[in-house]
């Protein structure tokens, strides 16, 4: 598994290298000292895993994740002390290591990662289309999420942003719906109308609607209208 270390402090990076030495399955392919450099290295080195410091000069770790094109590599956060961020992690059970890093906790994080990777198959960063197991990073206010694409019921356009509906949350993603749609697998996602894209796996019920359109009910209670044109395409797609 290829890993990239992102931390502005040289000593912190070399400490992490030392900690990772007993884990030969993790191959450190590079380092980055800030978010911009990290973005370039991720694009060129295509790591499977990044160790990401949150507080860095310039953009912080969260902002970096927001800027990365999904699918994201696996992320293990490292932070010295950040009440706010740690709360965000605990809430979402994201993986993080507190500096100085306890070697046993590192073993735990890597094991968790392995079992995740075994379940989902290792993500291939830079793929054109997002698979259902790929994750999208969203942050809104105090909360951060890695959302599996399969859990997204609906994507709704709000200007340059897209609102994602999953579980009981609906944060905004800093990407246009059109840009998101291009990355989604059209076997699973369908453009219902000008503003909305639905996840076909979440469709519960379909009703005829006015002037040849359709009303699609999603599991969880949301309703989405399809125009006549889209309804025709939907019927063609679903009958295949």
């Amino acid at each position: 598994m290829k890993a990239l270390l992102i931390d502005d402090e040289r000593l912190a990076r070399s400490e992490l290298r030392r900690l990772l030495a007993p884990h030969p399955e993790i191959e450190i392919v590079g380092e980055a000292v800030n978010a911009n450099e990290a973005q370039e290295r991720i694009a060129s080195l295509k790591p499977d895993l990044i160790f990401l410091d949150i507080q860095m000069p310039g953009d912080d770790g969260f902002t970096l994740l927001e800027k990365l094109e999904p699918p994201l590599p696996h992320v293990i956060f490292t932070t010295a002390y950040d009440e706010f961020a740690v709360k965000a992690f605990e809430f979402n059970a994201l993986d993080y290591l507190l500096k100085p890093v306890d070697p046993n906790r590192l073993v735990g994080a890597l094991e968790k990662l392995r079992s995740q990777a075994a379940r989902a198959g290792i993500a291939e960063p830079g793929r054109e289309r997002l698979g259902t197991d790929d994750k999208v990073f969203v942050r809104e206010g105090d909360h951060c999420w890695f959302v599996s694409v399969r859990n997204i019921r609906l994507l709704e356009s709000e200007g340059n942003y897209t609102r994602l509906y999953f579980d009981s949350h609906k944060p905004q993603l800093f990407r246009s719906l059109t840009a998101m749609e291009e990355r989604l697998d059209s076997r699973h996602f369908f453009r219902a109308n000008r503003k909305q894209v639905i996840n076909l796996a979440w469709v519960e019920d379909i009703e005829p609607w006015f002037s040849g359109g359709l009303l699609v009910k999603l599991k969880g209670g949301m309703k989405v209208e399809l125009s006549r044109r889209q309804a025709q395409e939907f019927r063609d797609r679903m009958s295949l």
């Binding site: 402090e9 000593l11 912190a12 030392r18 002390y81 950040d82 500096k99």
Partner: peptide, 18 residues
């Protein structure tokens, strides 16, 4: 400042070998 404290401890840990 806890942020300073824990970051320093982290650098220290690296420095012990170096």
């Amino acid at each position: 400042n806890p942020h300073f404290l824990f970051n320093s401890l982290n650098s220290l840990r690296a420095l012990i070998d170096e």
